[in-house]
Write a protein that binds this DNA or RNA. Sequence first.
DNA 1: TATAATGTTTGAAC
DNA 2: AGTTCAAACATTAT
Length: 247
Amino acid sequence: MEGPSLIIIREQVKIFRGKKIISAHGNAKIDMQRMEGKSISRIKTWGKHFLLCFPGFFVRIHFLMFGSYRINEEKNNAPRLSLKFRDGMLNFYTCAITLWEGNPDDVYDWEVDVMSDQWNDKTALTHLRQLKKEMVCDVLLNQSVFSGVGNIIKNEVLFRIRIHPETKIQNLTLAKRKELISEARNYSFDFLKWKRIFQLKKHWLIYHKKTCPRCNLPVHFKITGKGKRASFFCTNCQLKPAKKVLQ
DNA sequence: TATAATGTTTGAAC
DNA sequence: AGTTCAAACATTAT
């Protein structure tokens, strides 16, 4: 579940903002009683973190690979967290749930969330300079730099800007680094737009594709980077500059 | 039926 | 003692 998908969940769950929780149960290892009798004050997201906020604490839900949720319905398997309201219920399955003291604003840097209106290009550029030895495939998935970017977004962004996933940051010109930053955010909003109308897959250009839509040559598949994640790329259209331009 | 996949944390090993 | 990396977790469509 990548960042843009959480924006959709946030919108759907908005109906429960300000609503009192009658009961909370599930197999997540958190103090469920903490929420009972309290109202959800805010519903926020930071990248792939979905946050249910209460006065003085918040519950962080991470969907990882297989997480799912249901609004006013239940799945067959046991929920990690099930919240009951006077008229409605909210269920989370197979996700990582933790409870944190304080306010999200105290711990999250909204400038690095690609879906946030507080996103900051300059901050990202600084991070890239600090990670110049890393490969671009790893840096795009680094949640401290591009919070919300996942493996689909990574592959599509690199195809759009015609960069090979194994390119080191220090071999990207300033113009290319700026392009990387703007396209990480830009594609994320395209992802959101297409996800809303159930046309995300239809618009994939390189992810899980067999041939390059630009030149028609076969798409390469390789497990790349320290993170060992799947990359799909065209060696004809996506270049790997070898010259160091960032000292 | 085996496999792969929109991901992160943990703790063993070095 | 700090860093690294594989294992663990877990679901569902193909």
